Computed example of a mutant assay.
Amino acid sequence: MGKIIVTGASGNFGRAAAEQLLQKVAPQDVVCLTRSPEKLADLASKGAVVRQADFDDPESLVKAMEGGEKMLLISTLRVGTRVEQHRNAVEAAVANGVKHIVYTSVIGGGLEDHPGVEQTDHYDTEQIIKASGADYTFLRNSLYADAVATAMAIPALQAGSKPDNAGHGKVAMVAREDCVNIAVAVLTQDGHANKAYDVTGPELVSIPEAVAMISEMAGKPIDLQHVDDEGMYQYFDSLGVPRKASDVVPDGPIPWASEGMVTFGQSIREGYFDVQSDDVERITGKRPRSLKSVLEQYKGAWPA
């Protein structure tokens, strides 16, 4: 097996994937790309190759991709402006002879017609990868249960209320750990070229059901307020969140825009996330974790 490149290796997902790969393949075949190599000194000490790379600097990428055969392209966090970053990475990889690109997409990533701003980024990136000539595997991840257990649970418990525009739409929330497991499996097994997998948890749950579960486990009431999309925008406005990706101040206090969150909720409400698959278990051999088990994992971080 040739070298496996992991982009964004100092992020949560990338680091977890790199650590697993180090247990499965020769350490010198794990190439970790990061803007901050010092953050990966521990992986370098285990024999991984750590290289400085910046998705906004195509020249740095070309050098960083040397010798790679497969690449795990982890989508960057810049919703609305990340497609160019992904294009830079794909072009540098293919120019260096990378044969297979595994990409962390989203449920519905293959749909041309979709309300989600986040999904549009993933759709555009999938098309770039398909057109690149490399083999591809698209890992279309559902909503992270970890985000529900932290970014959703903590403010809702602090405020005792949560505005929400997802209605009663269902989503099979998935543990980030399961998303990492399937990514590593696809990178280290044969037979996954030119396929797309729906990476989901074991049960379909609505946001109100998830909030009720959080409330019950914490022993604190949370008043869920059903709002429309404009009401959701106004809530984020009140927190000082810019509406559009183009309005985000570089290196400012809030690095994301509310349109990603609002259209995500809309996508759930309109049924675009109502997908539950057995791909995680089929490919990793492990049953995916339930939302409840992920909530229990993070419960210690909730306000007392």
Rank of each mutant, 00 (worst) to 15 (best):
E66V: 10
L239Q: 15
D223K: 14
A41K: 08
A151P: 00
V31P: 02
F55I: 11
I128V: 15
V227T: 13
L33P: 01
D228K: 00
D121T: 04
I283A: 08
L111P: 02
K130W: 03
D247P: 00
I128F: 01
Y298N: 11
P250S: 05
M152P: 02
E112T: 11
P303N: 11
A151F: 03
Q20L: 15
M232F: 14
W256Q: 06
G285S: 10
P288C: 09
R51P: 03
P253S: 15
L61Q: 07
K299C: 10
D56Q: 14
D247V: 00
G47N: 10
E259I: 04
V62G: 08
E112Y: 02
A159D: 15
A16S: 13
I74R: 09
A26C: 03
D164A: 14
L295I: 10
V90Y: 09
V49W: 05
S290G: 13
L73E: 02
E38R: 15
D278R: 09
G285Y: 08
V117R: 09
A9T: 08
T104C: 04
S105V: 02
D198P: 03
A53E: 10
V25S: 00
H100P: 12
D251T: 00
K195L: 12
V6Q: 07
K24R: 15
G300I: 10
D229A: 15
A153Q: 04
R35Q: 05
M213W: 03
D54G: 06
S161W: 09
V98H: 06
T7C: 07
K170W: 05
L40Y: 06
M261Y: 12
V275F: 01
L204F: 01
L40W: 04
E177N: 08
R140K: 13
G219L: 11
P163H: 12
K3G: 06
L291F: 12
G67R: 02
P58T: 13
D198W: 00
N181C: 07
E259V: 03
G133E: 15
V106G: 02
A175D: 11
F264A: 05
W302C: 08
D42K: 11
K299G: 15
R282P: 05
Y123C: 06
T104W: 00
R140F: 00
L295F: 09
K99M: 08
W302F: 11
D229M: 13
V180Q: 05
